[in-house]
Nucleic acid binder design. Structure first.
Lengths: 101, 101
DNA sequence: GCGTTAACTTTGTGGCGCAAAGTACTTTTA
DNA sequence: TAAAAGTACTTTGCGCCACAAAGTTAACGC
């Protein structure tokens, strides 16, 4: 019932407000690169869903992609950018602050 | 690039995938009860937005509300339910697991 | 009594998450 | 060697939902 001050969430980014995006960022923060198929199986999502989220993260400048062929197969691999790394860290910071209120 | 096993997120609940709802649950987990106006100022959201999220959480059985008058003013106060407490704890568990991959 | 503030709730809409369908290519099968 | 099936994605369409503007009810100021 007591009144409290507004919770300020400086680094919180709505773009990360999703299980798939959190998973992608988490995986890419811990690995130099990760490809589409591995991400898909890691996160247990459909192709279309994953593409959409990857595109959103890439458009925001948080990840980058490289398309190439491995043998005869197309292969797209993703990496976190510096901007992505710091934005994600800030988001997690804001999150844990929020959850500790 | 290495393949990994699917991340299983047992307690993850999409209902909590939102800053306002996380904030509400966090505040209610730490306080016996909290009223509408205090929540609104704590979270810095509009009335309509807060109402919608509170209703969603209440419909799910995660929080409960009591409407009364304090003096001449209406006052709605919210509390976390047992179900809400354990669901929220499970969600946070899944979250931190996801972020630690 | 009349506007203003307070405490909510209802309503309308834009945006977005999702999977089904589509594309382009390769591999298998018969 | 043609067709069928698989692989690696992308595009599309739809249904839901977060959001704030507007609405409601009642008290308070003047």
């Amino acid at each position: 019932m007591a009144e409290g001050n507004p919770i300020l969430l400086d680094g919180y980014d709505k773009l990360f407000e999703n299980r798939v995006r959190l998973g992608v960022m988490s995986v890419l923060a811990a690995n130099d690169s990760y490809d589409f198929v591995s991400l898909r199986q890691m996160l247990g999502v459909t192709d279309g869903n994953l593409t959409t989220h990857l595109k959103a993260l890439e458009t925001a400048g948080f990840i980058s992609s490289i398309k190439q062929f491995i043998g005869r197969k197309p292969n797209t691999s993703y990496s976190i950018t510096e901007q992505g790394r710091s934005a994600f860290a800030a988001h997690i910071g804001a999150l844990s602050k929020l959850l500790k209120v």
